[in-house]
Design a protein around this nucleic acid. Structure first.
Length: 488
DNA sequence: AAAAAAT
């Protein structure tokens, strides 16, 4: 199977081969023909499997059929709109559009906040067919009448489950209201919650579902591990682990912007090259820091979930959850920054007693029991074993539980004096992924693809909105609040 | 329960 077999035009084949890719990934093999056919679709695939090219390539081709070579701005209406949840991701998707659209006479632009509007306005004035944007700044342009969306033929929501979550819905609805009802709509994500599936059903017209390896929403090439550790010793353990692997780049996730900055500062004081990225940093700093990390100049990046989705760092060997995310889906996205494109990766989570509930949810979602290993000298709280899941206590007291127990008796020693321990194994031929037991029953209930798009009926209770911003619980179905999303 | 996204 080659890109030519998928029916891509020579201009795109040439651009693809220049990037070095020779064979389309499974998601690309399935998505490209569907998008080319003009049908609505919903694409679910593992992180790091080439989803972006899966829609940018056919999107460009569809527009290329009637590309205008005119220099008049009036002949270059916006014909494709791609929305992304973070500025960095928008930039990355736009880079893909530019790369693959190199030999096609189409113009594109990336629109996002935190930067001067003038350049964007100027480019829009000259005319662009493809717009990649974050919602806020796009609406800003709409209000200022510097962009016109009435001729959009193709809409893409990248990281669709995030784009359709509570915080984004009002913006998305406003944008959808501006688009022609007659259009092609495409949704892509690694995870689709039940709620999002229902929203998607209202947004799309007879959507084709393209879904690759849903059982393994996390890559088989990622080795997961949990280090039970008391909350107070987490940062010491982190420094310890990073020192043990002095060369490996690492992406560290935390839950809050405050801790993000503090942790980067702590690591720096410990002599570890680290920087922070989060939403309170200036856009200039965000761009610069990410660029330093992507290029390898920066070794450790501490991040909030601003970096959880979509970001593609070449051959990143290690992701560490300093705190477990509150939502199990976010675990999938966070660790999806490693083990990409078939490479191996390590996902380490530092888990204190308080977080055991989150751990249980994550294991349920990904259908995997993550091996737990106490690092000597960095013990968890005494009540770690009593809190949260107790399912493996006696029954099936195999590797994981015993490993934790075996090392647990070590008295809490001074962290600095802690004995070296099994550190993240890096790729290499001998590092085989340690897979836990996979619970098929659990894995299957994440998103039932066997009967997608069941119309939201009464017995199919529609999700409701918890509108925290207005401080009240709104029990109307989400679909009602969305209004304009419906197009059936 | 937090973060992100316009200023």
């Amino acid at each position: 199977m080659s890109f030519a077999d998928l029916g891509l035009i020579p201009e795109l084949q040439r651009a693809v081969s220049e990037t070095g890719y020779t064979e389309p990934t499974p998601i690309q093999q399935q998505a490209i023909p569907v998008v080319l056919s003009g049908l609505d679709m919903m694409g679910a695939a593992q992180t790091g499997t080439g989803k972006t090219a899966g829609f940018t390539l056919p999107l460009i081709q569809r527009l290329a059929r009637h590309a205008s070579t005119s220099t008049s701005p009036a002949r270059h209406p916006v014909r494709a709109l791609v929305l992304a949840p973070t500025r960095e991701l928008a930039v990355q998707v736009h880079e893909s559009v530019e790369t693959y659209g190199k030999y096609v006479p189409l113009r594109s632009i990336c629109i996002y906040g935190g930067v001067d509007m003038r350049g964007q306005i100027e480019a829009l004035r000259r005319g662009v067919e493809i717009v990649v944007a974050t919602p806020g700044r796009l609406l800003d342009h709409v209000q200022q009448k510097t962009i016109q969306l009435g001729q959009v033929e193709i809409l893409v929501l990248d990281e669709a489950d995030r784009m359709l979550d509570m915080g984004f819905i009002p913006d998305i609805r406003r944008i959808l209201d501006l688009l022609p009802a007659q259009r092609q709509s495409l949704l892509f994500s690694a995870t689709f919650s039940e709620e999002i599936k229902k929203l998607a059903d209202r947004m799309l017209k007879n959507p084709t579902l393209v879904e690759v390896a849903r059982r393994n929403m996390v890559s088989e090439t990622i080795e997961h591990r949990v280090h039970p550790v008391s909350a107070g010793l987490k940062r010491n353990l982190l420094a310890h682990l990073l020192r043990h692997e002095p060369d490996a780049q690492a992406l560290i996730f935390v839950d809050t912007k405050l801790l993000c900055g503090r942790l980067a500062h702590y690591l720096t004081r410990q002599g570890i090259s680290a920087d922070a990225i989060h939403g309170d940093k200036s856009q200039g700093q965000r761009t610069e820091t990410l660029e330093a990390f992507k290029s390898g100049r920066l070794r450790v990046l501490v991040a909030t979930d601003v970096a959880a989705r979509g970001l593609d760092v070449d051959d990143l060997p290690l992701v560490i959850n300093f705190e477990l995310p509150h939502t199990a889906e976010d675990y999938v996205h966070r660790i999806g920054r490693t083990g990409r494109a078939g490479r191996s990766g390590n996902a380490i989570s530092l888990v204190c007693a308080e977080e055991k509930g989150r751990l249980a949810e994550i294991q349920k979602l990904i259908g995997l029991d993550i091996p737990q290993e106490v690092v000597p000298g960095f013990d968890p709280e005494p009540d770690y074993d009593e809190v949260g899941t107790h399912k493996r206590k006696h029954r099936d007291a195999a590797p994981r539980a015993s490993a934790a127990k075996a090392t647990a008796p070590t008295p809490a020693a001074a962290p600095a004096a802690a004995a070296p321990t099994a550190a993240p194994r890096r790729s290499g031929g001998d590092a085989r992924p340690t897979r836990g037991r996979r619970d098929k029953r659990v894995a299957a209930d994440g998103f039932d693809f066997s009967k997608p798009y069941a119309p939201a009926s009464e017995d199919n209770a529609a999700p409701t909105v918890d509108d925290r911003s207005s401080g009240r619980r709104d029990k109307r179905p989400v679909a009602v609040l969305l209004g304009g999303l419906g197009r059936k």
